[in-house]
């Protein structure tokens, strides 16, 4: 494919993350630090899970297709669990950090709320996982060819980009909901997040049946968006307030 595809896919995969970053993160150094650290924690989880997977593949018989497929499923599950463990670790770390911040700050409250931290950390996870899943595909999208000579779908690049977009947003929402669950000790929330993460990752095992994997993933994303909205302090009341204020503004002007 060509440069057009490269930019198209890059915009799809990283456009929302980029917008979120410049409007909500970039101005505040503390948020930038939390974002980068979140990305780093995701990287650590990747390192660990890939290490385990690498050993498993090397130790197994490479010619046994069934075994390899089984290993792949195992790898997915294991990686998801590791990612969530690291998310929890990161939450503990941030809690400790806020206590420290409160102690040294002049004011009574922390400079950043737990919800904000959750959002920034989740976005950090999302950006890093998005980058890792997309960069190589992006570099191949520049070349003259497109997928399909072996009969695969020619929509590979655009669906990969859409999948990355969904994963980035999902990680953000999961971050918000997960931190809230930890904060309020609602363990079922954490269980639901882990299960959804497992579900989404397993759905991608359906590929290249993109019709089978993409819509459910987007349904989950939408549901998580709503949940995250409410768990971070939003309410229907707020929404209607926004609408009425708009209306009053329109009337007054």
């Amino acid at each position: 494919m060509t440069v057009a595809v490269f930019f198209g896919c890059a915009f799809i995969a990283f456009g929302p993350a980029f917008a979120l970053f410049i409007f909500t993160i970039a101005r505040d150094p503390l948020r930038v630090i939390i974002l980068i650290a979140g990305a780093f924690f995701w990287l650590l989880s990747l390192l660990l899970s890939s290490l385990v997977w690498f050993i498993a593949v090397k130790a197994s018989n490479a010619d046994d297709a069934k075994l390899q497929k089984g290993l792949l499923v195992f790898g997915v599950v294991f990686s998801v669990l590791i990612q969530e463990v690291f998310r929890f670790t990161y939450y503990r770390l941030l809690r400790k950090a806020t206590e420290g911040l409160v102690a040294i700050s002049d004011e009574e409250t922390a400079p950043i709320s737990v919800q904000q931290m959750a959002y920034v950390a989740g976005l950090g996870f999302g950006i890093m996982s998005g980058a890792f899943s997309m960069i190589n595909i992006l570099s191949d999208s520049l070349g003259p060819g497109t997928v399909g000579i072996f009969g695969d779908s020619q929509y590979y690049f655009i669906t990969s980009a859409l999948m990355t977009l969904a994963m980035t947003l999902l990680h953000t929402f999961w971050g918000v909901v997960f931190f809230e669950g930890c904060e309020k000790s609602r363990w079922w929330v954490i269980v639901v997040v882990v299960c959804l993460h497992l579900l989404v990752s397993s759905l991608s095992l359906l590929n290249p049946l993109y019709e089978g994997s993409l819509p459910p993933v987007y349904v989950v994303t939408a549901a998580m968006a709503v949940w995250a909205f409410f768990s971070s302090g939003g309410s229907l009341n707020n929404l209607s307030q926004l609408c009425t204020r708009k209306r009053t503004e329109a009337a007054s002007s």
Binding site: K69, L72, N136, D140, D152, S204, L205
Partner: peptide
């Protein structure tokens, strides 16, 4: 190929290329 498509973490460079060329 499976790796590339689904397993977001373990991407190896040459495999997408092998599906294209």
């Amino acid at each position: 190929l499976l790796l590339i498509c689904f397993f977001y973490s373990h991407v190896s460079c040459s495999s997408v290329e092998q599906k294209i060329y």
